[in-house]
Amino acid sequence: MNGAGRVLSGLAAIVYALILAPIVVVVALAFSADSFILFPPSGYSLRWFRQLAGHAPLLNALWLSVQIASVVTLLSLAVGVPAALALAKGRFAWRDALTNFFLAPLLLPTLIAGLALLLFFTPLRLTATLPGLVLGHMTVTVPFVIRMMTTAFQTLPDDIEAAAATLGAKPWRVVWRVTLPLVTPGLIACACLSFLLSFDETVISLFLSGPRAATLPVEMVRYVEGRTDPLIAALSVLLIVATLIVVVVVERLVGVARAVGK
């Protein structure tokens, strides 16, 4: 390794340390035996995990978040995949304009989106309701799905679909038998990421949540506003582990699907 390589590696190590340090702190706190946040903890125990198991508001919020994220993911794929297919493969006027239009929400600060949704949903009585939260999250996940799947569809060689057509497959059969199977790895990754996006969504949820419908991030924000014990740290560790499992499973699935596909 030459000098420049060593300097770059050193810089990379510093950046990683900066990113990972807070997580190390959170993990240490999760196993704290203290009654309040103290770093380093004076002793270690599993008491905050036991406490979490009996904490109804957080568990309810977790369940709500899982439900919302699942529905959001299914609906986003149902809406986004056909849209992406049309944008990637279709030939029609205004295609480029539409592509940009669908991607625009990705550039909009979620703070503004949240405020706009609140103003828009209030007269419709959609705030603090499950449909309201689902629709709110979809303003983030649908553009994301469209973007990711448009790329996935565009990178498919056109000839393979053309071959299916010349062999007598009707357009929807081409999509069903060739296009979708070939983008399956992308589809799985896309589904998992939009689940995580929805699960993690805080800003829009803060605007749209009410006392009866609070997602997990919202409930966590509320909790740390009032309390200073390591309960949230314990919850965070569980979320980190769950996320890691999802990422590893996706990596495995997508890897396996690739191996089977090509």
């Binding site: 060689p157 071959a163 089977v260 596909g261």
Partner: peptide, 12 residues
């Protein structure tokens, strides 16, 4: 019957 330059076989 169209035989493509790239063959365009269905990889899956």
């Amino acid at each position: 019957g169209y035989v493509f330059q790239s063959y365009a076989l269905f990889p899956h």
